Computed example of a mutant assay.
Amino acid sequence: MTTILVADDDANIRELVCLFLRNDGFEIAEAVDGKEALAIYASRQIDLVILDIMMPIMDGWALCKELRKANLDLPLLMLTARGETWEKVKGFELGTDDYLTKPFDPLEMLARVKALLKRYKVGSTQMIRFGSVTLDRQSYKVLLGEDSLTLPLKEFELLYKLAGTPGQVYTREQLIEQIWGIDYAGDDRTIDVHIKRLRERFAATPDFRIETVRGLGYRFEVNE
């Protein structure tokens, strides 16, 4: 399911936006300021962010800049009570994709969200393919040729995260924060256990391997 992060310190606006998004089938995460939004983004898979400009602790400008540094392919829709041209220009310069001035029509907001998701090809196309293997994030299933395999949720999310950036090294701490969340109280050796299970499940699959990078963490490699 496509997950949208809504960052706005106005509870009424968040409630309105989230109501229309949920009614349209989206999964929602909520934040009351930019700092909380960044923490949520680091702890789970987020497909699009709707962010207000005027927020406490970290405003929308700073949040937009940090999100864009973290991910060039994350759709960003900026909300504001103001409509001055210079603010729109600044937002676009910082990396926002679209702009909506309050008060706005929720149906227009929905249309803009769907347009951004389509532009970034987020939704039904959330698949990673390599060799005979396909990871389908919509169904959380792995296709091995014509065979389908359903993994436990955390195993799938771990594999999807690693496979999304072949060759990139992730530390155990990064994987814990991005998949289990920054509030996870368990041992980071949880990652080792899940990696071991993934290796055992796909031992007979020649298309990829998960390598241990001594002293650092893990990386995903596609076999040529």
Rank of each mutant, 00 (worst) to 15 (best):
E27W: 11
E27I: 07
E27N: 13
E27S: 15
I28N: 04
I28M: 00
E30F: 00
A31C: 05
V32G: 09
V32L: 09
G34T: 04
E36K: 13
A37G: 08
L38R: 04
I40D: 00
A42G: 07
A42K: 14
A42H: 12
A42S: 11
Q45C: 13
I46T: 06
L48K: 01
L51F: 00
L51V: 12
D52E: 05
I53Y: 03
M54W: 09
M54S: 11
M55I: 03
M55L: 10
I57A: 02
D59V: 06
W61H: 11
A62Q: 03
C64V: 03
C64R: 04
K65G: 09
K65A: 14
E66K: 09
L67I: 09
L67W: 00
K69R: 12
K69Q: 03
A70Y: 06
A70W: 04
N71Q: 03
N71K: 01
L74S: 01
L74T: 06
P75H: 02
P75F: 01
L79M: 04
T80R: 11
A81E: 00
A81L: 04
T85A: 13
E87P: 07
E87N: 09
K88Q: 14
V89T: 11
K90G: 00
K90D: 10
K90T: 11
E93D: 15
G95Q: 04
T96N: 07
D97C: 02
D98K: 09
T101F: 06
T101C: 12
T101K: 08
K102D: 00
P103R: 07
D105C: 02
D105S: 12
L107I: 15
M109F: 02
L110F: 00
V113H: 01
A115G: 15
L117F: 03
R119K: 15
K121E: 06
V122G: 07
G123H: 08
G123V: 01
G123M: 05
S124Y: 13
S124C: 08
Q126F: 07
G131W: 08
S132G: 13
V133A: 01
V133Y: 06
T134P: 01
L135H: 03
D136P: 05
R137F: 09
Q138D: 14
S139N: 14
Y140F: 14
V142N: 02
L143A: 14
G145S: 12
E146C: 10
D147Y: 14
L149N: 06
L149R: 15
L149H: 07
T150D: 13
T150W: 11
T150H: 12
L151Y: 08
P152L: 14
P152D: 15
L153Y: 12
L153H: 13
K154A: 11
K154S: 14
E155W: 10
F156N: 01
E157S: 09
Y160L: 08
K161A: 10
K161D: 00
L162D: 04
L162I: 04
A163R: 09
T165Q: 14
T165N: 15
P166V: 04
Y170V: 07
R172N: 11
